[in-house]
């Protein structure tokens, strides 16, 4: 199968290791990965901040970048960005009176999957240890990001895959369904409220005794990880793709208090 990777802007610029882990997993399963070079961002930051006119040219860019290539499915290591493609892009195009782009956006969105959904629903993966060789001997808790849980209705796909990793000790997170306080530009526009939400999320993570908190959206993980770092906590955050990419032969290296670097996929 040929899979087009939508890295998302934040992974591209801040967490390239998550995109590399995603590539690694898919290539391990024997699939061809392409990276449409015109891609940038889904436009969600602009839409959620009310900048619909600015968002329109970003939407067009994404639709062009992903309409241009021949692939079977596209994948992104983010539920929030994938939801934005189907939920917001057509709305923004119609807001600008561009029905053609709206229809093209719906088409691209219909072929773009969040990573856990692609792995389970399309590729039939239900056991990461057995089918992907995933090995990660650490105590890990999991944060369920809101857009995956509520808009995409992902259910427990992401955490269920993490549970099947060899050597991993899974700790359930109390108040799992509570937002971490990120909310895009909400995090700095309403910093005090956002910070209070994040502080409670961090307390819950610390109560589990886990070494790390994983999840499926690096934006939330950057928020949680940033607050943990500010607190001087030893707990770090990482994307579940990084855990799935880690194997016995090529384990994910835990380096330093904040950063985790994958050695896979770079050869």
């Amino acid at each position: 199968m040929r899979i087009a990777l939508f890295s998302t802007c934040i992974v591209d610029a801040m967490y390239p290791r998550v995109a590399r882990a995603t590539v690694d997993i898919l290539e391990r399963l024997g699939h061809e990965v392409v990276f449409p070079p015109g891609q940038t961002c889904c436009s969600q930051m602009h839409v959620n901040s009310g900048y619909f006119d600015d968002a329109y040219s970003i939407v067009k860019n994404h639709v062009d970048a992903f309409s241009d290539w021949d692939y079977d499915v596209a994948v992104a290591p983010s539920a929030s960005c994938v939801v934005s493609l189907g939920h917001q892009q057509p709305m923004i195009a119609r807001h600008a009176g561009d029905e053609g782009t709206a229809i093209a956006a719906e088409d691209v969105a219909g072929r773009t999957f969040e990573l856990s959904k692609l792995l389970i629903d399309v590729l039939g993966i239900t056991d990461a240890a057995e089918q992907l060789g995933s090995y990660f001997p650490h105590k890990v808790t999991f944060h369920s990001s809101c857009h995956g849980m509520r808009i995409m209705q992902l259910g427990t796909r992401q955490s269920d895959l993490v549970r099947t990793v060899e050597g991993l000790e899974f700790e359930e997170l109390p108040d799992l369904d509570q937002c971490c306080g990120f909310g895009g530009t909400f995090s700095f526009k309403n910093a005090d409220t956002s910070g209070a939400m994040t502080a409670d999320k961090v307390k819950n993570i610390e109560s589990t005794g886990a070494e790390m908190c994983t999840g499926g959206d690096v934006s939330c993980l950057m928020n949680i990880g940033g607050a943990l770092s500010r607190k001087g906590s030893d707990v770090t955050t990482l994307h579940f793709a990084e855990i799935l990419a880690s194997t016995k032969d090529n384990p994910l290296e835990v380096s330093g208090p904040v950063a985790l670097t994958t050695t896979t996929g770079g050869k």
Binding site: A13, M14, P16, A191, R230, A259
Partner: peptide, 13 residues
């Protein structure tokens, strides 16, 4: 600065 009031940003890659 509202972000860094409560959180750090990791070193960019």
């Amino acid at each position: 600065g509202g972000w860094t009031k409560y959180r750090d940003i990791p070193e960019p890659p």
